[in-house]
Design a protein around this nucleic acid. Structure first.
Lengths: 221, 221, 221, 221
DNA sequence: TATGAATGAGCATTCATTCAT
DNA sequence: CATGAATGAATGCTCATTCAT
């Protein structure tokens, strides 16, 4: 509590801010890129939202394009590998596993700012093909792999009907993507038209899907 | 007769081109807007793709923004009313009706250039809120209304389980939107990673959905 | 009155219009150039005001600059030569002669659309130096020559004091120019601020001037 | 002291330039607008004359029109209030007062770059009506008010004949405006045709006017 | 002749990027 | 490291001019 400590404190706070700079810039950039797209976002605005000057932005990211790439990479957390393990250990019905997967996804990705990356990538893919390829590899493929494995587990254990797995995967993925797109696009414009309760949305979709997937004795299409 | 013909012929090459211009420009603009987004599309490129000079574009659309709006409006033709009637006359199981709806949608929208509008609107909604509202009214609402009516018919006739219709609608819409987004975004970048056969995709999704929706005597989740 | 006559009539009317075209274009151009300046006047607007199409304008005047020159030349009536004669025949006091000159000037130039040329030339002189030189020769010099001759007559006949003629000329010219500039500039913007009665203005200025010029027995500055 | 000086010196070359920029730009713009008119002056040329790049101009003035307005406002300083006082204190004949007024006007306005504003305003009034109204209020009215007061003083003190003051004002103003217009228009094109010695011009005009205004015992028009 | 669609050079304005401080 | 003034390439848009009809 001495004045020295105070000085040290403000010193360390400044240091912390200094180290936090790139992160703050990436956060600001993510928001703006998601909101307005890459081309329509002005570098200066990113800097302003992060509370620094235009020049500082270019101190950390040599070009706007590099900033964009950094934003995507930063938020493309390859958490799927980790989830993979988590799910391999899962004991219980595959239906519960799938429901659990969805809830985890919503908590850790869907509900967070990271979900903006999906909107961003889908909107800008054709302007950044290399990045799109990277995203494909690092996010999409692991994600669909995980879903595929869940489906295969269900089928192998006789819990699910033997469906066309390759395409059934999209039955899980599509509602996730759709929810994200609505959240960041039309839903952000006219919230009154999209009173979506995400939890209820996720549950409803999963219920429908699982009804469709689950093997049942006397079922007929 | 020949002199009459001569008069008719006065719709010369130039004239014919003139009437075709707006359409050609809108076509070119749709492709580019879908591909690169509104901001990243240069007016001159739109003109060039339509085979005219920069100036000509502005002869038909006073600003780039008006061009954008025209592109959206042009492709938003309220085909839903017509479908509505078509479906109200439908005789047969609601499952068949739903399958038919999906195929018709794919033929008339999904597979055509009009599907680009969806990608466009979702990507740019927040930059064009008025347009987004318009799109919401003219496209989204009629579309979801139609789907809702199909679901309600199925439930009323005891063919479908009594599901949460409001959210179940998205079970139909999400795969459609997802397919479009992939077609115009990641799928357009790396076709080899998306060897999606749309017909098969559509059928698979519908089968899964209908499995989930159809009422079955002794079924339990 | 026969239909043939009617046809002939309309024929001749068309012919007359055809011949009148350049004049109508020059009229329209004069108005617009005076109002907005050369650069800010659009060729199309000139054509529209003359009731013809853009193309027709360029049929008569190869460039906008040529149109401008034609406008100036057309309205630079070298009437001063003719006035010169008229005034040389004048009998009566030089004061009356001067008053007469002013009134004639007002009637034939000041009050007419031709006065716009003065505003135009003064505003655009530095953008059209050759034209300015031409104007100088054809209008300014003859005009000041005429005024100079009137002053010299007055002095020669002992009616006027022996003033510095070269500069006294501007005593006559300045109020004329001023009146024109106000009419076409500030006065045209805020008429309520310039309730100038030109006749009264002209008379007052001449009275003051003549009071100053007229030789009087016991006068002292 | 040296460290203090260092701090003071922090108003470096760059800083000093920054503060001078708007003024330099306004100076350059005034010259060009007077010379070529608003429409014919290119922004880049203004910047170049001020020794900066195109972009810098727009850093200080958001549009060309705002630049124009700033140029006019900047040079419209209401010096008239100050003159008013100066003249109210004047002791001596009203004729001397008027001569003094003219000389002061020439020194402080007529001979300076500020006179360009008059040419500018008169040439562009109809393109900038709001600005014209402002100019009318801030410059014209105070100016004519001052002249009117001088005339009234002369009449009240029996030095001047009881003339139509409202219109007589223009007898003073017209030669001033005329001189300015010539200086910036035809006179600037062909100096050899206008070897006007402003001092002599001003004196001649005032002499003529005062001769016309001064009350004389047995005078008759 | 008259038209008006088409052109493209030209200009105002923006914005990513640089760099002196 | 941080700043923000300065830059100039890029782009939307205008308008004089052309030319097929």
């Amino acid at each position: 509590m001495s004045s020295t400590r105070l000085a040290d404190d403000s010193q360390s706070r400044r240091e912390r801010r200094k180290e936090a700079r790139p992160g703050e810039l990436l956060d600001a950039a993510l928001d703006l890129f998601v909101e307005k797209g890459f081309a329509a976002t002005r570098s200066e605005e990113v800097a302003a939202r992060a509370g620094v000057s235009k020049g500082t932005l270019f101190l950390y990211f040599p070009t706007k394009e590099e900033l964009f790439k950094a934003v995507v990479r930063e938020n493309m957390s390859g958490r799927f590998a980790e989830w993979q393990e988590e799910f391999m250990k899962f004991e219980g019905s595959t239906a519960d596993m799938a429901r659990h997967f969805m809830r985890v996804w919503w908590e850790r990705i869907g509900a967070t700012r990271a979900s903006g990356i999906t909107k961003l990538m889908i909107s800008e893919a054709r302007n950044f093909p290399e990045l799109a390829a990277f995203y494909q590899q690092e996010v999409i493929r692991p994600g669909t792999d995980l879903v595929r494995r869940i489906l295969q587990r269900g089928i192998a254990r006789g819990e699910f009907r033997p469906v066309d797995v390759e395409y059934a995967v999209f039955g899980v993925v599509a509602p996730m993507i759709f929810l994200i797109m609505m959240k960041h696009s039309l839903g952000a414009c006219a919230p009154q038209d999209y009173p979506l309760d995400p939890q209820r949305y996720v549950d409803t979709q999963m219920d429908m899907l699982l009804q469709g997937l689950c093997a049942r004795p006397g079922a007929q299409a």
